[in-house]
Nucleic acid binder design. Structure first.
Lengths: 211, 211, 211, 211
DNA sequence: AATGAATGAGAGTTCATTCAT
DNA sequence: GATGAATGAACTCTCATTCAT
């Protein structure tokens, strides 16, 4: 993580650096991002970068952390308690998801960064930063699934992490799909309920198969 | 795509080259793969590589194409016609998917390559190769979805490519999940039906929501 | 040499700095030692280091000086007068040497530092610090040789500094040899007399050649 | 060791590269030598250097090997058999040594390189190159000592490698001493017999101590 | 008296690509 | 048709030193 000195910088400069890094990482992914380009566009010296951060990994971890924090903050979070019925649960999730997607829609960089992180090219070096960020968001998601199971809104006959993986896969697929349609053929307000509907059908307790 | 001269090589040598490339790309991903290592382990000269292929991208595209072709071939394909009822459709898909997963399970390289392709680190250079490969498999998948829709097995109220994306997202999530459980807590024969069940619930025609 | 301000520091802090430097220099040699690591482990600021010392060379010189001083002190020095016969001279030298080796054996840092100094990688910058330290110990050694010559214990037909160089070369060779034998095949009490015997044979007045 | 391609270069260019490296390594020692300076003064590209050698270590090893080879060659070697009496042994050694010193005297670079090697700053990376070179010369030396012992010219009551170390220490001390006297106060023809005399006294079978 | 932020040159190394042969 | 020598820009990272405060 960024050295303490970094956080003592005027926040304008902190942002200049993290923004530059964010643009670079989201445009090229971790492996192909160039520190040289980052320092150039941030307007700092090479030495300064290493004075503030421990290296490329460290910078990446910080950029990622900021994106996740902003995302959780901007999307406003889920009500607490989430809901007290299965229907309420899915409504709350839909509500939240629509907000999240809206936020992501306004920030292509964040979307790209997030995708890079979620899919993880897994260059060994990268992992540390990933773990760091993963630690922040994983528990939140698991808690959500567990709550859903307790309310009978989520099937309990499959491992939690499989359900999570599937949900994230679906979410990511949809994110990608939405982002790639620049002229949206389906706008957020229609698409999100459709996706959440699919998630609910997939993750909800197995009903009698629709024949 | 590989220059015509390449295909005039004895196929043993073609394979030597593509195998070496396959190992390298699957081990390091596109961006971090090293052409130097590839030519070294393929036992060909630097010049030869550029004589046969247009560059890294081009080689990658060919490797990918071969993997996909083999995959489709080894997994035996779907019956034609796929089915004549909605239930039959899903049964056929499940059947096929189980075969596909089995094939992938025996070929970690192909799995890694496929994942690298599906998730696409999106280094600009890469895209071309991707499109190339995508052109090969996309129509096949679209045809499948369309057939499903005609049989009433797949919902028709959402764009085909969104359904496709979601299905692939789910599939990939599950693949990843299965691969990462080294001592499988759920074996293929149990997991695949569960996943297909979820897919069917998600992609099938919207029933009345299970309340 | 350290600026006067340095010596006005509480000696605990002086030692903290010199100890840290000592560890670093002995572990990596002059050239590869890192000032950054030194100030970090000494717990002082970058500025402070340059406030107290003129630079890396200057610090090295001081570290070296302290090591030499301690060494001379801890080993107790030679009797004064050293001896009044040739035999007595060599006995005194042997005595002293045995004590010196013992001290060095308990301080690997000092040994390493000393070796680095004696062998001198000779990076131009280093030389100054070396000269500095050399000035401290050289006269002492020269005096010893001269005394030996006066007593007829040391041959007088060769330049003093050649004799000195040879003696130091022999001594260093033996030090190195002893250090590198972790399970000593020859312990100090046996080895030192053997070495001093060789020195005496080499440096003593040329007898009729042993045939 | 240098890649085979290197040896396929015109030997003028091989020499240009090794000479440049030799100058740099002898002037700065291994650790402080700069590859950049070497390629600049050799007039080759950075890529070429890495095309011919595996890295800094590899280049160093080759430079060292060449120096040692030349040294052994130029100094003409020892007669075989060395001698058949103790006196003959020392005469042969003296003879050889005088030749060796003469060669070294005309090549300050080789001397510096040799000293750097013999004293070994021991940067872990360096070791490989060192071992390589050491393997070449060590056996030769050991053989010499053993022969000396068999002839009764060298004492047999101390470990071979200690005797070797001491002899090398003495030799190095003298080399250094001779090199540092630019206007020689003692010329080679006088100095070498004196040194060999000292070596003989030190390493020869312990006579009754000259009292 | 003392700080620590900031520098920028330089380090060794890898790379995909070109081109004369 | 095929080679492999050669390139040089780009990479991440470390360093001793300076200087405004």
């Amino acid at each position: 993580m960024a050295r303490p000195r970094f956080h003592r910088l005027p926040s304008a400069q902190q942002n200049a650096i993290l923004d530059a890094a964010s643009v670079e990482f989201s445009a090229h992914g971790f492996a192909d991002a160039s520190l040289n380009r980052i320092i150039e566009s941030a307007g700092i010296s090479k030495g300064a970068m290493y004075y503030y951060f421990d290296g490329k990994d460290d910078l990446y971890a910080d950029v990622l952390r900021r994106v996740l924090e902003r995302l959780l903050e901007d999307s406003g979070g889920l009500p607490d308690p989430v809901a007290d019925t299965a229907d309420g649960f899915w409504t709350a999730v839909e509500d939240y998801y629509v907000r999240l997607v809206r936020v992501l829609a306004t920030s292509p960089d964040a979307s790209a960064l997030l995708r890079d992180w979620l899919t993880g090219t897994s260059a060994s070096a990268l992992r540390e930063g990933q773990r760091e960020a993963e630690r922040a968001i994983r528990p939140w998601l698991e808690q959500l699934v567990t709550t859903g199971q307790e309310l009978g809104a989520v099937r309990a006959d499959l491992p939690t992490d499989l359900l999570l993986a599937v949900a994230m896969g679906m979410g990511q697929a949809m994110d990608t799909w939405m982002i790639s349609r620049s002229p949206a053929t389906l706008d957020i307000d229609d698409a999100v309920p459709a996706l959440i509907g699919m998630m609910r059908a997939a993750l909800g307790p197995a009903s009698s198969p629709s024949s």
